[in-house]
């Protein structure tokens, strides 16, 4: 691949974006689009462009010697080779957490939407309530809850779920639990929005048409809640895949995820090209997965 070939499509698509549509919209339309366009340019396009550029610097550069643009696509190969494990671990933990969130969140959202009656809005507020404290503080509190000498471990040891020397903190269980806890509201809210919109008469209609309540759920409620399921899983999976706080505070050294690697490369190892290549890769990977997922879920209208 030539250098020009790399640069051109990048800028071409960017330039085409604001004026892409052939429809006549008049000047007002463009004026109205201006703030958003500027915002995107300044806070997405420019940083992203420079992130991609950084990822192509010669990785052996340093602040002393500077960074040379060598179109070092090899950086991408190197980071995949070196860090495929934390990459997979991130995706795996995020997928597990998303699965747990989906099950718990669906039950919760279902109960709030259909069974809570006048408590509906109070319960919703309670779901959001943890957001009023900082993400970090919430995660640190989990450190205390899951502590080796804490009541959770004591209880589980008493019940023989855990052996006398087993622990929760600094295990994958704690990391996934922390992720699931922290991102549960992102799952519950879209699910609730979807479920709340479902006309209860549709459920009545299904049982009127000989569907056992379970069958009715599967054939009517579930498909109608799919937009909520898709947006909920996306809203949970995407930040969970990039999260490193839970791994840092609740995991051990063997549970470090790709966010930790990026942080370490950028801040500790001071290796911007590698950090940038990892970031771009993570982004591309997630976008690709989301596209495949949304397409397969048959809910393209969402995007």
């Amino acid at each position: 691949m030539t250098q020009a070939a790399q640069a051109v499509p990048e800028t071409a698509t960017l330039a085409a974006e604001p004026s892409g549509s052939r429809r006549r919209r008049g000047r007002t339309g463009y004026l109205l689009m201006l703030p958003a366009t500027l915002w995107l340019l300044l806070f997405f396009v420019v940083p992203f462009y420079s992130l991609v550029a950084t990822s192509l610097f010669d990785a052996s550069g340093s602040d002393f010697r500077g960074y040379e643009m060598t179109y070092a696509w090899g950086n991408y190969v190197d980071v995949v080779e070196a860090y495929w494990q934390p990459f997979l671990r991130s995706l795996w933990y995020a997928a597990l957490a998303t699965g747990i969130c989906l099950v718990l969140g669906y039950v919760l959202a279902y109960a709030i939407a259909f069974k809570a009656g006048r408590w509906k809005w109070l319960l919703l507020v309670l779901v959001i309530a943890p957001f009023f404290t900082s993400f970090l503080v919430r995660t640190l509190s989990w450190q205390l809850i899951l502590s080796d000498e804490g009541f959770v471990v004591d209880a589980l040891q008493f019940l023989r779920v855990l052996g006398p020397d087993d622990r929760l903190l600094a295990t994958p269980v704690a990391v996934v639990a922390g992720l699931a806890y922290n991102f549960l509201p992102f799952m519950v809210l879209p699910l609730f929005a979807s479920l709340d919109k479902i006309d209860p008469r549709l459920v009545e209609a299904s049982s009127d048409l000989y569907a056992h309540p379970f069958v009715g759920f599967w054939k009517v409620t579930w498909p109608l809640s799919l937009p909520g399921v898709v947006s909920g899983t996306l809203l949970t999976f995407i930040p969970a895949a990039g999260d490193y706080i839970n791994a840092e505070f609740l995991g051990s050294t063997n549970q470090r995820v790709i966010g930790n690697v990026i942080q370490g490369q950028f801040i500790d190892a001071n290796n911007s090209p590698v950090a940038a290549a990892l970031s771009v890769l993570l982004m591309v990977l997630i976008v690709a997965m989301v596209l495949v997922y949304v397409r397969r879920a048959g809910t393209e209208e969402l995007l």
């Binding site: 420079s50 992130l51 990026i262």
Partner: peptide, 23 residues
């Protein structure tokens, strides 16, 4: 770190060219 990397490098030099040493 992702955003930080992007933003801070953005402040250096925009074009697709090398970044000089910081000494």
């Amino acid at each position: 770190a992702v955003a930080a990397a992007g933003l801070s490098v953005a402040a250096l030099k925009l074009p697709f060219f090398s970044v000089a040493g910081a000494a």
